[in-house]
Simulated scan of single mutants.
Amino acid sequence: MTGGTTDEAAGGARFRAPRGPVLMLLAVLLAGLLAGHRAVPNVRGLGSLLDSVTPLLGLGVPALVLGALLRRSRPALVAALFPATVWAVLFGPALLPPAAGAGPVTLRVASQNLRAGNPDPAGTVDALVSSGADLIALQEVNRDARVAAALHSRYPHHAEVSTVALWSRYPVRESTGVDTGLGWTRALRAVVAAPGGDLVVYVAHLGSARAGDTATRDETVRRLAAAVRADPARHLVVLGDLNTASTDRVFAPLTRLLGDAQADVGRGFGFTWPAELPVTRPDHVLYRGLTPTSAGVLHTPDSDHRAVTAGFRW
Rank of each mutant, 00 (worst) to 15 (best):
R14N: 12
P18N: 08
A68P: 11
L59W: 12
L56Q: 08
P104F: 02
P97D: 11
L23Q: 08
G36D: 00
P62R: 05
G20V: 08
A17Q: 12
L49N: 13
S52Y: 01
R74Q: 09
R72M: 09
V28A: 15
N42D: 15
S111F: 09
G20T: 08
H37K: 10
L29D: 02
P18L: 13
A99S: 13
G36S: 00
P62H: 04
N113Y: 01
A10C: 01
L95N: 00
A80E: 09
L29T: 08
A68H: 12
G36V: 02
P41L: 10
A102M: 07
G47D: 05
G20A: 09
L70E: 02
G67Q: 03
A13W: 06
V43L: 15
L96H: 02
A99I: 12
A76H: 07
L30Y: 06
F15A: 11
V65H: 07
R74T: 13
L95R: 08
S52R: 06
H37Q: 10
P98Y: 07
L64M: 10
L81H: 00
G47K: 08
R72Y: 08
R16D: 01
A76G: 06
R19M: 01
R71F: 00
G11T: 12
L33P: 04
R74F: 13
P18V: 10
L33C: 11
A39G: 01
L26Q: 03
D51A: 13
L29G: 11
A9Y: 03
A102Q: 14
L81Q: 00
V78T: 06
P83L: 06
P83D: 00
G20C: 12
Q112I: 03
P83F: 05
P75E: 04
L26W: 01
L56H: 05
V22K: 00
L69H: 05
G32M: 06
D51R: 11
V22S: 02
V22L: 15
G12C: 14
E8V: 13
R72D: 02
L69G: 15
P41Y: 04
P18A: 15
A63K: 01
P75K: 00
P75L: 02
G60Q: 09
R71N: 03
A80V: 01
P97R: 11
G47V: 09
A84R: 01
